[in-house]
Design a protein around this nucleic acid. Structure first.
Length: 599
RNA sequence: GCGCCCGUAGCUCAGCUGGAUAGAGCACCCGCCUUCUAAGCGGGUGGCCGCAGGUUCAAGUCCUGCCGGGCGCGCCA
């Protein structure tokens, strides 16, 4: 139930009303119809997928074998039946049966060319908007405001932002939620420290210019000075009871800390704004009623002085139910309480159909508990999808959690600065003729892109090893490689002095490299659909890398501007180039990565 | 102890609802620039897919057990 399917999404049977650029859906639909005509029950899926080997056509339908097994029929004969009913006139040039019952589909170049033509004329590259747009609430980044953002926040921020961008592009109503940690006991200490420093005539922004240092000062103060510690504890109480003076200090601290985060988001090219901040404090007033409601519904019970929900759904082997603490002995609330309030708000007030959480894998049990309680309490209806998209830890080159040499946490701002610096140095080395401004700008784009892409391109659920050299390399599945592919295309247009909009004529797919590139271009929407469904941005990375690789091969094999290229061929190839550039730029933009005209 | 995640080439990683001889990049070896950015392209070396069973026409993929690693499990968030 953690990874519930979003309601109503089923790519296999998506209709092709308008111009859907999704070949896979189209073929699935066509093959399904053929199967029905061949009296094969609807439950058997066509299993259409891109072929892995060039010899097996462009797409293959593997559903005949499974259906034959269930129907006790001969798989090759059944495949023959399906092919007999298969209507792909104008779409496929050849359909053949191979092996035990594979149906290999070879697409017609004229059809591919037509499909590409609809993409060239469309700003969205003919990517359809969702026919049933959902309201998707995306929880990501969510740093603790008591401290500076560190590398631990990178993955949630980057991956969540990519999904938010992508779902919005698909036409969904995306609501970003930055569930910042702006409440809790540590704020008593921090506010008390802030008050003292302000009394020494320091500006709040100055005192808090380095949150890490400030936190250490407060902690040191707290540990050594009992009077200060008492005050800190007193301020926690005052904060919770709404004391105006303490609250004002808290506001000040919060504002400065949020500004720090906002700076990082801007540097990172992350779309979060102050509008998206809905921190823990936002739910304060709802916590007591929420606990009361859980008690009324006999879900929460008192246990050892605390209020607990016991979940038999998550019981261990011996049948001991899993406890979820929602209120402490002293009456204080816990993060499960806040998360439940936030969840209820997102489903209720925000009207979310799909609630996505991009949070560390270590929170898996907690998220499962929150989801289960929310379901039982009726905070969310059956058809609302609750999804925890977990990710692994960021590891240093030594394979251990990423830390500084001295063992401290790595500040995000410093990491990003280093990325830009390293990239700038590389750009200057490779292209010394660039003006310093231009080089710095390219360095920024490449450096930030490299950091983000390195993260996005790995399977989300695994731990991931941070490696400067690998991510800044121009070889392999990296941001610089993709950005370079983009500049190569743009360079052709600069050289030719042609505007893409001025291009004319049919797209001709005579060479192998052109054909392969064409099919890959047309698979963009398939990649997007899959990422949207499973929240796995690395699938889009793989797609873009494949596309860039195929373009590089095309570039080597198919001259565009060179002498002797017929005009029709030149126009055709320039159109392919333009589609590649736009697809790369669009894909990278959805990942939150920028491109440059030259490198 | 229980639960979740992971184990694929020397290294970093792909492998899509089970499908055809398991794929990239790095590293190593060999080719390709008087021609659109060689920050590139082509080729080669390299794999008991942790181990053992099972299901299946078909298993890296599904099930069970074991080994190894990470993480989590009532008053922090």
């Amino acid at each position: 139930m953690t990874h519930a399917e979003p309601g109503g999404y089923n790519p296999a049977f998506a209709q092709t009303h308008t111009v859907t650029m999704n070949i896979r859906d189209l073929l699935n639909h066509k093959v399904q119809q053929a199967m029905l005509s061949a009296h094969i029950p609807f439950q058997h899926s066509p299993m259409v997928a891109p072929s892995k080997k060039p010899g097996f056509g462009d797409y293959q339908a593997n559903g005949a074998m499974g259906a034959a097994k269930a129907m006790k029929a001969n798989p090759r004969e059944l495949a023959g039946e399906i092919v007999r009913h298969l209507e792909l006139d104008g779409i496929a040039e050849r359909v053949e049966i191979a092996g035990p019952g594979f149906i290999n589909i070879h697409l017609a170049p004229e059809w591919l060319s037509q499909q590409l033509a609809t993409a060239t004329g469309d700003k969205r590259l003919a990517i359809a908007r969702a026919s049933e747009p959902q309201t998707v609430v995306v929880d990501y980044s969510s740093p603790n405001l008591a401290k500076e953002m560190h590398v631990g926040h990178l993955r949630s921020t980057i991956i969540g932002d990519a999904l938010a961008r992508l779902l919005a592009f698909q036409g969904h109503n995306v609501i970003r939620q930055n569930h910042v940690g702006d409440w809790g006991t540590q704020f008593g200490m921090l506010i008390a420290e802030l008050e003292e420093q302000l009394a020494e005539n320091r500006e709040a922004t100055m005192a808090l210019s380095d949150l890490e240092v400030f936190y250490q000062q407060a902690k040191g103060h707290f540990d050594k000075d009992p009077a200060f510690a008492d005050k800190a504890r007193d301020y926690v109480v005052k904060l919770q009871s709404g004391d105006p003076q303490v609250l004002a200090l808290w506001e000040k601290f919060r504002a400065v800390s949020l500004e720090h985060s906002q700076e990082i988001y801007e540097k990172l090219n992350v779309t979060l704004t102050s509008e998206d901040v809905r921190g823990e404090s936002f739910y304060n007033d709802d916590l007591a009623p929420l606990v009361a409601e859980l008690e009324e519904k006999d879900l929460a019970v008192e246990d050892q002085g605390a209020k607990v929900v016991f979940l038999e759904e998550l019981a261990d082997k011996e049948g001991n139910p899993s406890p979820v603490l929602i209120q402490k002995q002293g009456g204080g609330y816990l993060y499960a309480t806040t998360d439940l309030a936030a969840l209820r708000y997102r489903a209720g007030e925000l009207g979310g159909d799909r609630l996505m959480y991009f949070i560390d894998a270590r929170q898996s049990l907690h998220m499962q508990q929150v989801f289960t309680v929310a379901r039982k309490a009726g905070f969310v209806s059956e058809h609302i999808s609750l999804e925890h998209h977990a990710f692994g830890t960021m590891m240093g080159p030594d394979g251990k959690p990423f830390k500084t040499r001295s063992g401290g946490t790595v500040k995000l701002s410093e990491l990003l600065d280093e990325a830009m610096e390293r990239a700038s140095r590389l750009v200057r080395e490779k292209n010394p003729d660039l003006a310093p401004d231009t080089a710095a700008n390219i360095g920024r784009t490449v450096g930030i892109g490299a950091v983000k892409y390195a993260d996005l391109s790995k399977t989300r659920t695994n731990d991931y090893v941070f490696n400067w050299d690998a991510m800044l390399s121009f070889d392999g599945n990296t941001a610089p490689y993709l950005q370079y592919a983009y500049t190569r295309v743009r360079s052709i247009f600069r050289k030719a002095g042609v505007e893409p909009s001025a291009l004319q004529g049919e797209i001709l797919l005579s060479e192998e490299e052109e054909r392969a590139l064409a099919i890959k271009l047309l698979q963009f929407s398939e990649a997007l659909d899959q990422v949207a469904k499973d929240a796995l941005p690395h699938l889009l990375c793989t797609y873009l890398y494949d596309l860039a690789s195929l373009y590089m091969r095309f570039y080597e094999a198919c001259p565009v501007l060179k002498d002797g290229v017929p005009d029709a061929t030149r126009q055709s190839r320039l159109q392919l180039c333009d589609l590649v550039a736009r697809t790369l730029a669009q894909g990278l933009e959805l990942l939150g990565i920028e491109v440059t005209e030259q490198m």
